[in-house]
């Protein structure tokens, strides 16, 4: 199993932990895209964390739309720990999407570190 090498991963105990600010900070720092990978719906190890995460992600997407960055740069995915191939699929899918959207206008540097999407798992 292989996927594009421009994904950086931040480990969290549960997608439900992730705060709005963390997501926004990643964009502010220069991420072109962010995706949150949570457990399958109904399968949260901590009961309902992934539902909370989806709500928050949706709220931040709206915000990104409002400020003109585009909610498409942020996405929530549900998959289980045994779904390696699906993760690769998502990584590639998200990379394609971000390439299509072009570099983030918030990016402080040009070239060099481009095409790095932070993702939060």
């Amino acid at each position: 199993m292989q996927y594009v090498p421009n994904i950086r991963i931040v480990e969290m105990p549960c997608s439900g932990t992730i705060d709005h600010r963390v997501l926004l900070q990643a964009f502010e720092d220069g991420a072109d895209g962010v995706f949150v990978a949570g457990c399958m719906e109904g399968d949260c190890h901590f009961q309902k964390g992934n539902y909370r995460a989806r709500k928050r992600v949706n709220a931040v997407k709206k915000l990104l739309d409002e400020i003109g960055l585009g909610g498409e740069r942020l996405e929530m995915y549900n998959l289980s720990a045994a779904m390696g191939p699906r993760f690769a699929e998502i990584a590639n899918e998200m990379t394609e999407r971000v390439r299509r959207l072009g570099p983030s206008p918030l990016k402080k540097q040009s070239a060099g570190t481009m095409e790095k999407e932070g993702d939060v798992a």
């Binding site: 950086r8 931040v10 969290m12 992730i18 705060d19 600010r21 963390v22 900070q25 990643a26 720092d29 220069g30 991420a31 402080k108 540097q109 570190t113 790095k116 932070g118 939060v120």
Partner: peptide
């Protein structure tokens, strides 16, 4: 901590 991680990633 998460924010420090993202900062470390993008800021040289």
């Amino acid at each position: 901590m998460q924010m420090a991680m993202s900062r470390a990633l993008f800021r040289e």
